[in-house]
């Protein structure tokens, strides 16, 4: 069989094609990874409560306010701190530590987070510091959701445990006057 040797130009073209294909493959992989990474993140507002880290889904958070102008409501349920005005509405301010069934705290809460309860209404919960945005892997959140039936999902992220609050589960139960543990 007669073999026709490749010319230099042809050989260079082949190498160039292979090289370009490899680069394209790497870019596709990179793009895919980035896309996966973006899709896989569940944004939350993370804050400390005592020695632990808690978080609320960012889409449920409506505002963070200084904890003042709250009127106590005598004879209300123990988890109710009081009522306050927010954009023309009267909201209840609730103690998160109390809602969670009694919890130590490092510093007296000075911030109120206005949260959508999940039934179209708003309420406010106290926290020790202004929360910071944090991305949690969707996979980890879904796994926690499948595992935990209560209002708190234990999500592991970067070797740390974050207690993700599920507002509809938490506040629906609070509305019924029940106490909560994890």
């Amino acid at each position: 069989m007669k073999v026709t040797p490749r010319t230099l130009d042809e050989a260079q073209e082949d190498e160039l094609r292979v090289l370009l294909e490899r680069r394209a493959e790497r870019l596709r992989e990179l793009e895919q990874t980035e896309a996966n990474r973006e899709e896989a993140v569940h944004w939350v507002a993370e804050f400390p409560l005592g020695e632990e880290r808690y978080a609320l889904p960012l889409e449920t958070l409506r505002a963070a306010l200084p904890l003042r102008m709250v009127t106590p409501v005598p004879l209300s349920a123990p988890h109710v701190i009081g009522v306050l005005r927010f954009q023309g509405q009267v909201l209840a301010a609730l103690s998160l530590a109390s809602l969670l069934g009694g919890h130590g705290w490092r510093q007296d809460p000075a911030v109120l987070l206005v949260v959508e309860r999940g039934d179209g209404e708003l309420c406010a919960v106290d926290c020790e510091a202004i929360p910071r945005p944090l991305g949690l892997p969707v996979g980890a959140v879904e796994a926690a959701r499948a595992r935990d039936e209560g209002p708190i999902l234990e999500v592991f992220s970067d070797q740390q445990l974050v207690h993700l609050i599920d507002p509809p589960r938490l506040f629906t139960r609070a509305g019924a006057g029940a106490r909560h543990g994890r």
Partner: peptide, 16 residues
């Protein structure tokens, strides 16, 4: 306690 939330928490625990 001068903290409203601390008062609420202590009250909840003691009432319980």
């Amino acid at each position: 306690d001068d903290s409203l939330t601390a008062r609420a928490l202590h009250r909840a625990m003691l009432e319980a």
